[in-house]
Amino acid sequence: MRNLILLALALLLSPTIAFGQPVSPGSSEHLALARTYPSAAMQLELGYHIYLPPAYEARPEERFPVVYWLHGGSGFPPGVLAILSSRFDAAIRTGKVPPLIVVFPDGLGASMWVDSRDGSLPMESIVVSELIPHIDAAYRTIASAPGRILEGASMGGYGAARLGLKYPHLFGAISMLNAGPLQEMLDPQNAPTAGVERAQDTLDRVYGGDQEYFRSQSPIFLAEQNADAVRGKVAMRQLIGESDPLLENNRRFSEHLTALNIPHSFEVLPGVGHGSPRAMFAALGESYWEFFRVFLEGSSSDEP
């Protein structure tokens, strides 16, 4: 019962689009179809959106790589799914990136993409043990690490980093956009974007007020723990705006990866702040797609 109450609150407070029915073709979100999957962990149907490339119907024998795109603490605000799915669609149609599927999971509010300390919202387990198997069963995917990419922004960038570093056998590439929190400990008095009250709420609600639990879930710790499994096997990039309050934490995380000899790219985007995807995409231009293209072409060359 407690899980159901928490989930209901999360859905009410989250600005994500309602799940359960495909969005009509006339909707601004028509490229990102709304679907559901059964969650044993939550004992109900949970939602996601999915973009399928034109080749999915045109080439019915083919399997496709999947990008799992993780949202930030405010979910997908109105219009963002349309922007993201339209960008992927245009890039695929113009040959900037090979055909791929994009899945937009619902993180049920500010879950941090973590299994909460008290077990009430096992978001990590939901993604890894329920959503991904559902996607692989329901769609023609490349169901292995060379066919899976994690990307996310802000909280979603943190989620992409930690899930990719924790499960390198599941994901072949990690793309972090203005990711956070990437520090080793969550100090509410020093929370660059969240502020004291929100950071304390996150620490208490998700991590049970336990700094050691926060550290055990952090990308810093997971990079240390799984460096050998990640090194040279998982492609990684960090993109961060020069005006983003999370810049220094991102820079320190990049230095941490370098010290662990984990290859990755780190790019600071001039004039870009936090929570400004349009500015970030504008600063990147067409170079945004190179990470996907290089990874997918390399993965294809490794196929038997």
Rank of each mutant, 00 (worst) to 15 (best):
L182I: 09
Q183P: 01
E184M: 07
E184K: 15
Q189Y: 13
A191P: 10
P192W: 15
A194E: 06
V196Q: 09
D201V: 01
D204Y: 01
V206N: 00
V206Q: 00
Y207P: 14
Y207M: 06
G209Y: 02
D210W: 13
Q211D: 06
E212I: 11
E212D: 12
E212K: 12
Y213P: 02
S216E: 09
Q217T: 14
S218H: 10
S218R: 12
P219Y: 06
F221K: 09
A223W: 02
A227Q: 12
D228L: 02
D228Y: 01
R231Q: 11
R231Y: 13
R231M: 05
R231A: 09
G232I: 14
V234C: 00
M236N: 09
R237N: 08
Q238V: 10
I240P: 05
E242V: 05
S243H: 14
S243Q: 13
L247Q: 07
E248C: 03
E248N: 10
N250P: 02
R251E: 03
R252P: 03
R252Q: 09
R252W: 12
F253C: 03
F253H: 15
L257Q: 04
L257C: 04
T258F: 06
A259I: 00
L260G: 05
L260K: 05
I262T: 04
P263F: 08
H264G: 04
S265K: 15
F266C: 06
E267H: 13
V268Q: 12
L269G: 10
V272Y: 14
V272K: 12
G273L: 04
S276E: 13
S276P: 01
S276H: 11
R278E: 11
R278K: 14
R278Q: 11
F281L: 07
F281I: 08
A283G: 07
G285I: 00
G285M: 05
E286M: 07
S287Q: 11
S287N: 07
W289A: 03
W289M: 04
F292C: 02
V294I: 08
L296K: 10
G298C: 03
S299K: 14
S299A: 15
